[in-house]
Design a binder for these strands. Structure first.
Lengths: 209, 209
DNA sequence: ACATGAGTTAAACGTTCGTTTTAATCGAAC
DNA sequence: GTTCGATTAAAACGAACGTTTAACTCATGT
């Protein structure tokens, strides 16, 4: 196949296994087995396991980043100072389901992002491109305008909070406190819950020192 | 030494290394080297690496759990229906610094909790005792009374959000969007920021379906 | 004095890991 | 039809892993 079919099959398998078991918990052999490829194919197509992870992370992150950026563009085209609620939705929404319309693989991709970003392995955090930083800075500036009087550091803390809350739905970060509760809530509902939760949180008055 | 000095030295070393590099990223040899103990001492004192992790997790979690429980007791002694803000502080406060007064090792311990709870390895999540579940359920009930009209599942989502936000300050869950920003904010300040952030979030009106 | 047993030590076990090497295979261009 | 670069296949490499074994130390109790 043109552009090597096994290459994308390896990417697919790695994406799934990294999401489920983390970087260190996934062996190259498990990836190639799931992909139906040979063990050495990883070394050939990507060079090393760490570079494979970087490729997976970039492939997963890119559509999210462009969705976040496009969402901010649309808001700024209407008004130079978008309200907090719309900023939250434009920033956190794509994190929930990869694509604004919500494709089926969204749950796994965001689960992967969380797993990668919180992975203790160094290799898991050295893949970032310049685009991710740029969109983060643009939202930071927009939130700063929407929340005057909030200290930059506290704003930074709150933006990290957005990522944390969107993440926690995917990771079982706590054993279910109540017996009769599903481990993870379904995408669309959780997305709404997160937006109300985060809009209220972001709109909170600054903490007095 | 009585009760085997090396046993606690191994626990200390494991606590630090698990917090820094995760479960799979920490080898038994690295633990015993840092502890100045023999490799086989882990097998002798704990049985296996997984049981060592469980011992570490229990030792770290216990004071937090009792602080959460005592905080809730104190609130309930005053009124049967504590307000949301005080519930948030009593629940999230101990997560920030292990002890209410804030001892020096607090930052590392909470970092460890996050690392353990989000670790993709199965062994890292099968250590929980009955106490942790109990205090979670008690807070769940208290929040349910303080937030009438909120669906149980959405309440559960929000409680997970509390844990996520308290966690994110420790884990570098996102590359710093702005250049001139410290990776992690200091304990006491972040604790206040988190409480205002979370109080506002928890107090948000229920999401309409 | 000596047996006991918990604690420690050094060495090795078998397995799994990421990576590399070497040869075989395929498809198109000449 | 042959040649050549690109891709896949099979096998092996050395290193690191968790765990186990067997010998040793040494205070204690008799």
């Amino acid at each position: 196949m043109a552009l090597s079919d096994t290459r994308t099959k390896i990417l697919d398998a790695a994406e799934r296994l990294f999401a489920e078991h983390g970087y260190r918990g996934t062996s190259v052999r498990a990836i190639t087995d799931l992909a139906g490829a040979n063990l050495a194919a990883v070394g050939y197509h990507f060079g090393s396991k760490a570079e494979l992870l970087a490729a997976v992370a970039r492939r997963v992150t890119e559509p999210i980043t462009v969705a976040q950026s496009a969402g901010l563009d649309k808001l700024l085209a209407r008004t130079p100072d978008p309200p907090v609620a719309e900023l939250v939705e434009a920033f956190a929404g794509p994190l929930f389901d990869g694509m604004p319309a919500g494709d089926e693989s969204g749950a796994r991709t965001s689960r992967l992002i969380v797993t990668i970003l919180s992975d203790p392995a160094e290799e898991a955090r050295n893949w970032t491109g310049p685009d991710e930083d740029t969109v983060g800075e643009r939202y930071l500036a927009a939130f700063a305008r929407a929340l005057p009087g909030l200290a930059p550091q506290e704003l930074l803390f709150r933006m990290r909070g957005i990522l944390a809350v969107t993440a926690v739905d995917r990771v079982e970060v706590y054993n279910p406190p109540s017996p009769a509760c599903p481990t993870a809530t379904e995408g669309e509902e959780a997305r709404h819950w997160a937006i109300t939760f985060l809009t209220a949180a972001m709109s909170a008055p600054p903490t007095r020192a």
